Computed example of a mutant assay.
Amino acid sequence: MPATHLPLLALTMGDAAGVGPEVIAGCWADARVHALCRPVVLGNPEILRRACRLRGQSIEVQPISTIAEATPSPTTLPCLAVGGDDVLDVPIGTHDARTGQAAYLAVVEAARLALAGQIEGLVTAPLSKAALHAAGHDYPGHTELLAELCGTPRFAMMLYLPPGVANRSPCGLGVAHVTLHTSMRTALDMINVEANVEAAELARDMMQRLGVAAPRIGVAALNPHAGEGGLFGDEEIRIIAPAVAQMRQAGIDATGPLSADTLMIAARDGAFDAVVAQYHDQGHIALKLLAMHAAVNVTLGLPIVRTSVAHGTAFDRAWQGTAETTGMIAAIETAAKLVPTRTRRD
């Protein structure tokens, strides 16, 4: 008889001084989470106990030494302890090397477990990039760290809105980025034909995994009015149009370069399944205006499943018991959907 197989997902706690612990605590009792997966948290058990108390959750935090010991339920939160207890003394809402190191170790361990097949995916709560750097780890964020840990040279960040969330696509809407965590001046030098084609290929592959047989991809222009025929810049003529031509030659249903100020409206209304944005804020601002708290961060190109909330540590709102949990639930749902095998035979 076939039996439902719920994937084992690791949730990394993120920065202990930010909203990550309370976001996890806040969504833990939600029946949807446990209907989607078997979750286990990597982090500090006492921090999670504090977060559960803050949210008024009657949840037992169960310290475990191996993933195999995890018995998650709406009232039991298994926690694989990672890092030391020095995070207990870090003031709320501060960038600190101690919380940066703990968050780093949790991601490293989660990636190791995923690559070893001991978990089927990971969902990350936000870490502080400044705290990460203070701890001596020179990465712009989760995406680049995970790419290195997985030995992945071709990767990209996609922000993804699940179906029915401010978009008309039955499989949701994704935005992949040509450049990511870098300054605008640096990003301009990184935009080229190859990077555009790679982002489109990764976006196509991900949307196919999410259920779109032949994804329609809109490619954003860089300059106002798509360069206005070269009057406002020639990147569209020199780089983006040739890239779109290569995409189409490779069998990708790509259209562009399209003016960025109207592209997301068309995508929202169902014209595209995915968008290729040229730089971080071009994609992030537009998609987050549609539905920030429901957006999911998906890392493209990894040999493992990784999703995340689309917001940061929110130090200004941390540990007030008001952190939004919608994004974490959406990230868990998306990770569970991306796990290749959802059923098995006993």
Rank of each mutant, 00 (worst) to 15 (best):
I47W: 07
L338Q: 05
M190Q: 14
H137L: 06
W28V: 14
I265S: 11
F272M: 01
G172H: 01
K288D: 03
P224I: 13
L300R: 00
R112G: 15
P340D: 13
R38V: 08
R216N: 02
P39T: 11
V61P: 01
C171L: 00
P45W: 06
D96L: 10
L222Y: 09
H5P: 00
V33Y: 01
A166M: 09
S183C: 07
I217N: 02
Q57P: 00
G327E: 10
W319F: 14
E60I: 12
A97N: 03
I24P: 05
L42W: 06
H181V: 02
Q320N: 12
R345K: 09
V244E: 07
H5W: 09
V40Y: 04
E228I: 13
T75Q: 15
L231M: 15
A291L: 07
V309Y: 07
R38H: 10
E148V: 11
A271N: 07
E235N: 10
H5S: 14
G321D: 11
Y160E: 03
Q246P: 00
L258A: 05
G321F: 10
R216Y: 01
R185L: 10
K337L: 12
P72M: 11
P78K: 09
H284L: 12
M157G: 04
N44V: 08
L159Y: 08
A274I: 01
S308W: 05
N297T: 09
V309N: 09
T179C: 07
V33F: 04
E120D: 14
L287Y: 02
I240T: 06
P257W: 04
A330R: 11
A187F: 02
P224F: 12
V339E: 06
R112A: 15
D30A: 14
A310K: 01
A156V: 02
